[in-house]
Design a protein around this nucleic acid. Structure first.
Length: 105
DNA sequence: TGGTTGACGGTGG
DNA sequence: TCCACCGCCAACC
């Protein structure tokens, strides 16, 4: 069964989802993929985020599963700082209390 | 048109 | 808890 061809490019939907993540909240790549309509495209989401440097897209709020920070163009420390500044408790390379700060759309 | 590339996820050792 | 492997996918070249 061919998946329904998305009327709008996957990348546009992903960016749209990420823009909706409020400050102090996070979403995993898998969450974003699911919200964008492709539950198994977490890796593809990461690829898109890799090239996304727009200030209007809070890509630092997108983390890996299990509370792991994931990457940030080699600036993982900055990602960690940005999240901490928003009130997200980060310890080492892990977000604590993930279920408490996980965005619930 | 077809192969490569990873800011991933889940499982197993 | 950490690391290695394999499966998945859209964007890129």
């Amino acid at each position: 069964m061919a998946r329904k061809p998305t009327p709008v490019p996957f990348m546009a939907r992903v960016l749209s989802v990420v823009r909706r993540i409020p400050p102090g909240r996070v979403a995993t790549y898998g969450d974003v993929a699911a919200l964008a309509g492709r539950p198994r495209a977490a890796r593809a989401v990461g690829n898109i985020m890799r090239g996304c440097r727009r200030p209007d897209v809070p890509c630092h709020r997108v983390i890996a599963a299990g509370g792991r920070l994931g990457g940030y163009g080699g600036r993982e420390m900055l990602k960690r700082s940005l999240l901490a500044a928003e009130g997200v408790i980060v310890s080492g390379q892990r977000v604590r209390e993930l279920e408490r700060v996980r965005w619930d759309p």
